[in-house]
Simulated assay, not measured.
Amino acid sequence: MNRYMKLVHMEISRFWKLYVVLFAVTLLVQCGGVLMAARDYMSRRQHILETELLTDAQYVVKHGAFNLYTAMMDASMWIVAPIALSAVTLLLYTVFIWYREWMGKNSFIYRLLMLPTARRNIYLAKLTAILLLVLGLVGFQLAILPIEQLICRMSVPQALSDPVSLLEMIRYYYIFVVLVPNHLTDFLLLYGTGTALVILLFTIVLLERSYRLKGIIAGILYLIVVSLILIAPLYLYDYQTSFLHFDLYLYPMESLTIEMVLILIIGLISLWISLYLLQKKVTV
């Protein structure tokens, strides 16, 4: 366990510089977007007041108040862009976290595989590191909400604002509904699917590292088979019309349950294949 924790620490420490960059980009871009939305709101108010004699209360009734929710909706691109950037970066790093070991003349993989610890600890450490990095970015996104809330309050007079609680933001803003699902089932489905995806990518990488060109072909075929298996419950063939119909014979909850079971099975099979390859096939 001690060696496993050290490996996890090593994997996270190797990513920390890029991690800080993602934090900084997210903070600056989103806060800038909120500030721009606030200024646009005040600019529209000023323009309307030049043609309509309205008090602040009348303006709010007629044109709506301002708060963090409206700011994020108006600046949606500035909110989503850094989140998408972080997601793509971590997705690419999920593959690179293995290939970096073979880079350079003095490949680090030599020392890594010769450590006096089970090879599965190397695998589990990389998997744990990716999951912790994902949760860390989600946590940081929630942590900066008070800062964005403060920007809203400082940029727009209180008479024109309609404060929204941070809990309401997390519960109703569409990005946070995805990142932090309100129901346990949705949370397990989302992050369980994410974990299975990471394991699947690890499997494809280890197939390539084990068999090179044949491994690439095997990885592509494995990905196609997995995709077909996951799609199959969503489409059932209707022999009367000769067409594929979406959810023709299954209730939504039944389809969801089947998908969760399939994802679990695929994740476990991929995990077993990965550990077998790392233990028996990956050599230096």
Results as ranks from 00 to 15, higher is better:
Leu188Gly: 00
Leu142Tyr: 07
Thr70Lys: 06
Ile258Pro: 11
Val261Ser: 15
Tyr174Lys: 15
Lys17Val: 03
Thr185Pro: 00
Glu208Cys: 03
Asn67Ile: 09
Ala84Gly: 02
Thr89Val: 11
Leu228Gln: 12
Glu148Gln: 08
Ala75His: 06
Met72Arg: 04
Ser13Val: 09
Asp162Cys: 02
Val177Lys: 09
Asn182Asp: 15
Leu91Met: 13
Asn121Asp: 14
Glu52Trp: 09
Val25Ala: 08
Met72Phe: 09
Asp238Ala: 06
Leu92Thr: 08
Leu244Arg: 06
Glu52Ala: 12
Trp272Leu: 07
Tyr172Leu: 09
Leu184Ala: 13
Ile266Gly: 03
Leu190Glu: 11
Asp162Ser: 13
Val226Phe: 10
Ile273Thr: 02
Val180Tyr: 00
Gln149Asn: 15
Ala38Ser: 13
Met77Phe: 08
Met42Pro: 15
Arg119Trp: 04
Leu28Ile: 02
Phe66Gln: 00
Tyr19Met: 03
Val180Arg: 06
Thr193Ser: 06
Val88Ala: 10
Ile258Ala: 05
Leu28Gly: 07
Leu127Ala: 01
Phe246Pro: 03
Val205Asn: 04
Leu262Asp: 04
Ser270Ile: 02
Thr241Lys: 12
Ala71Gln: 05
Phe140Glu: 13
Asn67Phe: 04
Pro146Ser: 00
Leu184His: 07
Leu277Asn: 00
Tyr173Val: 04
Tyr123Gln: 05
Phe66Met: 05
Tyr237Met: 01
Gly194Tyr: 11
Leu213Tyr: 13
Thr70Gln: 12
Asp40Tyr: 08
Arg212Thr: 14
Tyr237Trp: 06
Met260Asp: 06
Thr185Asn: 01
Lys105Val: 15
